[in-house]
Design a protein around this nucleic acid. Structure first.
Lengths: 173, 173
DNA sequence: AATTTACTTGACTGTTTAGTCAACAAGCAA
DNA sequence: TTGCTTGTTGACTAAACAGTCAAGTAAATT
């Protein structure tokens, strides 16, 4: 039960922040969900903010890296991107937290910007692997379209446009 | 001073919600900013939520409509979109509020979805005016790219990619 | 077995916050 | 002037919430 509490806390905190936002999230909800008490959480994390920053590092950033480092081709990349609406039920966690936090807290701003940069680099590397020209700009185009289309999907509650927009982009590369 | 208080309240509320999010916003800050007292606000709005929904209607949606109904050509549309980073200092207000609220409160979900639909229709109409084929999908493509690029701009604090991504999209129409 | 370290408990504190209310003032119509 | 509607005041309430702490238990170290 040593590592378990900390990891369970991060899992539950990720889910809660993902749905309610960082500011809207209630620590009591997380504690109740994990089935532990206050002091136990404050043993591992010195504040709600500390918990939030660790969620970005050890959940959001880590999931992103795991997902995209295994991607080898452009086709594979688009397949992964197109499968997003099934899993990202409240939108893109990185995007959502960025929109909320970057102009509110500079520590969040730093870690979220860094995480985004990693994401962009991973996409760029996939493009370079197949010698796509102008990979830096193309990576940004792909991410921009992906993030925007995901938002439209959630606002419309309709995945049709999400996949068609991404497939149209794929053809233009 | 009859209409003034209500309008000043909506202006300040819009700015505060835009920066801090709806949940993170503090009513006392808004009241202090406008220079009035609690009861005065609750004379015009029955709750914070009521204020929030009215901000969406009378500020976010109205600004959007005013901005895009005057746009007549595709070139003009992209000029307006490309000028966004200078004015939208905390990102796209509609996108930001949507990411925060659509899975938290169904009244916000409804009004934000409706507002988004209006936005999409306006863009589509500009495309149709110049007989762009497949205007429904193209409108979604433009908005997706625009929203995503705006996010990247804010996370990177660098506008270069924003304009190049949008200009690249313009050429593909 | 003894002692230190790691983890847990849950009541408690202090603050922040949305929302209420009764009394008061201004604008206006008769 | 009188009365009515609209808007304003600011103290008050009640709840929610992040964070603390002293005392306890479990686990590892010697």
């Amino acid at each position: 039960m040593k590592k378990h509490t900390r990891e369970a806390l991060l899992d539950s905190a990720f889910n809660t922040f993902y749905k309610h936002g960082f500011q809207g999230a209630n620590i009591a909800t997380i504690l109740n969900d994990v089935g532990i008490n206050k002091g136990s959480m404050y043993h591992f994390f010195k504040s709600k903010k500390d918990l939030g920053l660790t969620v970005v590092e050890e959940r959001i950033a880590r999931n992103l890296v795991n997902k995209y480092t295994s991607v080898k081709s452009v086709k594979e990349l688009f397949d992964v991107l197109c499968s997003a609406p099934k899993t990202l039920i409240y939108g893109c966690p990185l995007n959502k937290m960025s929109q909320e936090m970057i102009y509110i807290d500079s520590d969040f701003q730093k870690i979220l910007s860094t995480t985004y940069a990693k994401f962009e680099t991973l996409i760029q590397e996939v493009l370079e692997r197949e010698e796509v020209t102008n990979s830096a700009l193309k990576a940004k185009q792909i991410i921009a379209t992906y993030e925007g289309a995901l938002m439209i999907y959630h606002l419309n509650q309709n995945a049709d446009c999400f996949v068609s927009v991404l497939r149209a982009l794929e053809k233009e590369l």
